[in-house]
Nucleic acid binder design. Structure first.
Lengths: 234, 234
DNA sequence: CGGTATCTGTGCGCTAGCGTCCCGACAGCG
DNA sequence: CGCTGTCGGGACGCTAGCGCACAGATACCG
């Protein structure tokens, strides 16, 4: 069920001034990311800055003695590695490929050169970092207050936005890992959503049937994250 | 019980190169922050950048239909308003004075001037933002996984670090608000800590008795936040 | 000195989510 | 074709935290 509305681009790059964008894209290397590939580990040096196109990436924070927890999702609307802007070259988070597909990337020196050459580029990335900070704060609150079913709906909607499709591949087990709950908790919530004909799934492939319905079920954090993005990034 | 070891300074400023630091401090206005004063509201323009000295500030994220939630604590080791660096002049969070006391501050134009004049200053603030991002991610995980008692212990230790004292004023009610739980939940956890002679409190004033013991009870997030700070900020 | 507001402690029933274990169904592989 | 691994579903008792309501205790204020 492909609905590839202009998926072969990264918005951060495509909304730059024509010249700057072209130059930076030309400097990029095109790579194919594959599911479950690790792009960065917390505490280790970032090697490349990624601009996903059809692919998307989870950012995950490790917790001793507990499962890990996803705190962000980066698709063609964003970038992984923008923290380099802050003058620290290690990754704060684990970056894990969630959705296979093409991505552009820059090595760190090339990235630094691009920043110097294009103030518009740097400005855009700074703004993006601001959005990410807001989303992190939102995630903290979301994890504290919202129920699994609402968080699941949110996650599905976020993923849909980044996959540019209403279907994608994901198991309950993996969802549980992302949301920091038991697999059984996901099964229960997913069953409930399916019962209301909002989604439909089978052995690792899931389809969103009723987007408006899901939005109603999802916690406000979905809308809030989106609002933060559009407000800041235009 | 004052233990004011060099509390009348802000580390971010005092660790700048001599000249830069002196010039920026000279540009600052000294103000006295008082408990429960609001310094910024989410979505509204930031008016001043604050460098707390003996005072400290909570950063709080609002959640519709639930209590709000503290996601950060800024004392003399930090700054409020550094997000201006990212090119967005609205505050992502609610900034609420937690501990009364002196602070330095800069108006936004003066802040921008200082950034231009001192690359070291800008570098330091960028690094601080990186630390804040790590702490936000940590907070997300902490809220998901850790029990009230551990989170309370963590909060007390963090506050102690920023108050530069083992005693401070805070009610269960307010703690509940900060941690996003019921007041009763705090009472229960606090009673347990007091029972083990780790703390002692009475009608809004609390004293930490056994720091090592509290560290053992607190979740790893306390150590983790601190490690992130010292690793990056030196 | 008495009244009132604030702060802390308790009790009660309830729910979401946990940990664990087991089962059935399907897919893919040899 | 049958084995094996993966995926989803269900059941068990348990705990942390919730919402609510109320009671004692202390501080403060008139």
């Amino acid at each position: 069920m492909p609905s590839n509305r202009s998926a072969a681009t990264n918005q951060l790059l495509s909304t730059l001034p024509r010249q700057d964008g072209a130059r930076i894209i030309a400097a990029c290397e095109a790579v194919e990311l594959s599911f479950s590939e690790t792009l960065a580990e917390p505490g280790e040096r970032i090697r490349h800055v990624y601009f996903p196109m059809a692919s998307f990436i989870s950012t995950i924070t490790p917790v001793r003695d507990h499962g890990n927890l996803e705190v962000g999702l980066v698709g063609s609307e964003g970038v992984f590695g923008a923290t380099l802007l802050l003058g620290v070259d290690t990754s704060p988070l684990h970056a894990l490929v969630q959705g296979s597909g093409p991505s552009l990337r820059l090595g760190v020196p090339a990235f630094r050169r691009a920043l110097k050459q294009s103030p518009a580029f740097e400005r855009k990335l700074r703004n993006y970092l601001y959005v990410v900070m807001r989303q992190l704060a939102q995630a903290a609150a979301c994890n504290r207050f919202h129920l699994v079913e609402a968080r699941l709906a949110r996650w599905l909607l976020m993923t849909r936005d980044r996959a540019h499709a209403n279907s994608f591949h994901i198991t309950h087990d993996f969802l549980a890992y992302m949301l920091g709950v038991r697999r059984v908790g996901i099964t229960k919530a997913a069953t409930a959503l399916q019962g209301r004909a909002l989604i439909q799934y089978n052995r690792g492939s899931i389809t969103l049937l009723d987007i408006a319905g899901l939005k109603a079920v999802a916690c406000e954090c979905y809308a809030s994250d989106k609002a933060a993005y559009t407000e800041i990034m235009g």
